[in-house]
């Protein structure tokens, strides 16, 4: 069962990412990104990360992509054609990067296999995550830092987006 779910969500993820990377229209790409991020949320669920999957749905699928779509529709006026030249240029770079990524993953995978850990049944994670975020010897500092950062980002984003519009009546 988990294999079927894995194949399903992995397929959604990879297809979405492929369409996003190579489609001509940016609106189509943005919607394909929604599919890819949804697939990643599903993969989190198959990994037993229920809370993280939900957060991925809320923040990425619901939030970031809506922002992206707004920006796409507010700014894109002319279509920038894909140039074949750039693809020819980037293919070896991506190939080399892929080689090193797979090599690194092989090393990490060997290290993890050496721990000999066998994953058990997934447990609900929400309560444990909440307790870890509020434990002083856990993740309290990152939690507070992110809270302050989010406030700064809110103010900063509004300031950056508004400036200059005061000069135009």
């Amino acid at each position: 069962m988990i294999d079927f779910m894995f194949m399903l969500f992995a397929g959604i993820t990879v297809l979405g990412a492929l369409v996003m990377a190579f489609h001509e229209s940016i609106v189509h790409s943005a919607f394909a990104l929604v599919a890819a991020l949804f697939g990643v949320a599903g993969l989190y669920w198959t990994l037993g990360a229920d809370f993280l999957g939900g957060l991925q749905l809320l923040l990425y699928v619901g939030g970031v992509t809506v922002l992206l779509l707004f920006a796409v529709m507010l700014t894109t006026r002319d279509t920038m054609r894909l140039s074949l030249f750039r693809y020819v240029l980037m293919a070896p770079v991506v190939g080399i990067a892929g080689f090193f990524v797979l090599r690194a993953y092989n090393g990490v995978e060997a290290a993890i296999a050496a721990t000999g850990h066998v994953p058990g049944d997934p447990q609900p994670t929400t309560q444990a995550i909440g307790e870890m975020f509020l434990a002083p010897d856990g993740y309290l500092l990152p939690f507070q830092t992110v809270a302050v950062l989010l406030l700064l980002v809110l103010i900063g984003a509004v300031t950056v987006a508004r400036r200059g519009q005061e000069t135009t009546p």
Binding site: A49, F51, H117, T125, L150, A157
Partner: peptide, 30 residues
Amino acid sequence: TRFGGYELDGQMMALVVVMLAAAEAAVALA
């Protein structure tokens, strides 16, 4: 986290990354 038996530490990292990505997207789009 799942296959190495690292409790929840990897998930906590991923949670922080998701939050930072949302912040990054807001500023970048502005």
